[in-house]
Design a protein around this nucleic acid. Structure first.
Lengths: 167, 167
DNA sequence: ACCGTCATGTAATCGGTTACATGATTCT
DNA sequence: AGAATCATGTAACCGATTACATGACGGT
């Protein structure tokens, strides 16, 4: 039972598995896409590697599908549940960084106009998508889903403001 | 002359070196801290490794200090200048992600109150710092510096709004 | 003298990115 | 039937993080 460091990817896997009870890496890929993927994406290859890592360290247990492809199914163990609960209760201190490649270019003197036009269009599209999903959200949706969508909406609006001013 | 892939870190190094003409890794560390560090930080160990990588690939040239510690000084070569110019003219397509560890916890059902309190305080502090620097900016400052500061201000205000609503 | 903190650097490990691969569906 | 896309997975490499290290200097 190797002793590993848990990253945000680990907790995304743990969190999604806890909700769904049991899932294959491919299920996880779908889940990420449908949930946290918009503000924290995970490449699908990681969704094969990370559960394995977590299983080796005792945070997950494995089961083989008994029909068809006989794929691997993962479940959260007691140890995993504890780790997830501790993480949920912790308060992170580091603030996120913008890390926008367009902004980096602006800083180094790139011509703002073409950049702004492209980014503005992209953010508007993203914003529309969020608004549509926000409108489609029904009352019983978990509060976390609504809140994170709202956060995304706010920041997309901010980007639209910013790039629009540079057009 | 190894053929390497250039990352954002590469262009931060190239960009800063182009401005300062010549610098040691330690100078780069100071420069990053004073410039792009607020929206795109780079761990100092990378500022030793990355210039070496770039030099091996011909984007930088090296010189030895002739007194004192005889540290390594890096300068951008013609190849480096070209690469930087191309990057500056390109339009990135991927949008940045929020990747906020607090938001991730909210999504997975963490109690918002304590998180919101801590994050709110942190973002307020950050916001104040930005506002001070914004006020201290003089007219001859490069436009990129002002614009990136404005972007940071906008997003910090957005975070303050978001977390304040959860208090 | 002692302690802390800046200045300056190196090393090891590992998570993540990128590329490759292939069977199964669906569309034209 | 052929093309395209989805479903599902593996492998290799490497940039980034983390930890370790040590000399200089300013303050008490």
């Amino acid at each position: 039972m190797a002793d590993i460091a848990l990253t945000s990817t680990s907790f995304i896997v743990l969190g999604l598995l806890q909700r769904s009870g049991e899932a294959t890496p491919y299920d996880l890929k779908q889940l990420v896409g449908a949930t946290v993927g918009n503000f924290w994406s995970v490449p699908h290859s990681q969704l094969y590697a990370e559960p394995e890592r977590l299983a080796r360290a005792g945070y997950l247990a494995t089961r083989q599908e008994d029909a068809g492809r006989r794929r691997k199914l993962y479940v959260v163990t007691e140890r995993g549940r504890t780790a997830l609960a501790e993480w949920l209760a912790a308060t992170p201190d580091a603030l996120p960084e913008l890390r926008d490649p367009g902004l980096l270019r602006i800083f180094f003197g790139a011509d703002p106009a073409p950049l702004a036009a492209a980014r503005l269009a992209a953010h508007r599209r993203q914003l529309e998508g969020y608004e549509a999903r926000r409108a489609a959200l029904h009352a019983e949706a978990p509060p976390g889903a609504r809140l994170t969508l709202d956060a995304g909406l706010g920041h997309e609006r901010e980007w639209v403001r910013f790039w629009a001013a540079l057009t």
